[in-house]
């Protein structure tokens, strides 16, 4: 998986459930579960929304593990 995230960590820090986060960013809980498990890469808009909910920069919540090639 090229894109990793710290959604679970930020959820724990903010004492937020997956359902609450899903409601705040307007997606289903399944999408939050898939994101946390690294099974789905979010759109740029969703990534920004999630970062905004946690009040952090997008690069803090998500990171790209690209290869040099």
């Amino acid at each position: 998986m090229m894109i990793t995230n710290k959604i679970k960590v930020f959820r724990a820090i903010n004492d937020m459930t997956q359902g609450e986060l899903a409601e705040k960013v307007g997606v289903t809980r399944q999408t939050i579960i898939a994101l946390e498990k690294g099974k789905y890469n979010p759109s740029l808009e969703l990534a920004f929304k999630i970062a905004h909910v946690f009040d952090v920069g997008i690069e803090e919540a998500f990171s790209y593990q690209g290869s040099e090639n």
Binding site: A22, E23, G26, V27, T28, Q30, T31, P42, S43
Partner: peptide
């Protein structure tokens, strides 16, 4: 009222 479809679906 709940989200039925989102970008992943």
């Amino acid at each position: 009222k709940e989200v039925m479809e989102d970008e992943m679906i």
